[in-house]
Amino acid sequence: MGSASSMLTQYDIEEVQEHCNDLFSQQEIVSLYQRFCQLDRNAKGFISADEFLSVPEFAMNPLSQRLLKMVDGLNFKDFVAFLSAFSARASMQQKSELIFKVYDSDCNGKVSFNDILEVLRDLSGSFMSDEQREKVLTQVLQEAGYTRESYLTLDDFVKVLGSYGVKMEVEVPID
């Protein structure tokens, strides 16, 4: 809707910008707001799981259920904050943080062997057996100097992922 952009004042936009550490420009935030209103079909101020799943490209994603737990019911400010990790301006630390949160489903600040296994299960579905997944993970962890019992912290993630650079950028279309 053409009127959507006029509903955000400069104060609103600045507030949102502050909330997402200035990772999006004002124009990008206006675009994101239009998109938010479009997805929030019932105009409740948040996007429900069902509304997210009405986007087929999202519904087809192997991690969609896991991500839904993170984005379901977010208001606009938090919606932007979630997406800010995908901004081209986000640091490796910020990107790693998001990835860490996806793994850390119980939000206890550490990722266990089983947490990683769960994500691996989402990604590979029925095309790998549980034994295969465990074998892969055990071997890879060992080679990196960890064991089955070790917990990975955010710092470990930053160290492992940050050193070689994660490509995780989405452009916000501006009209």
Partner: peptide, 8 residues
């Protein structure tokens, strides 16, 4: 490990 953890 990084290949496995990188779900980007």
């Amino acid at each position: 490990l990084r290949d496995l953890l990188d779900i980007s």
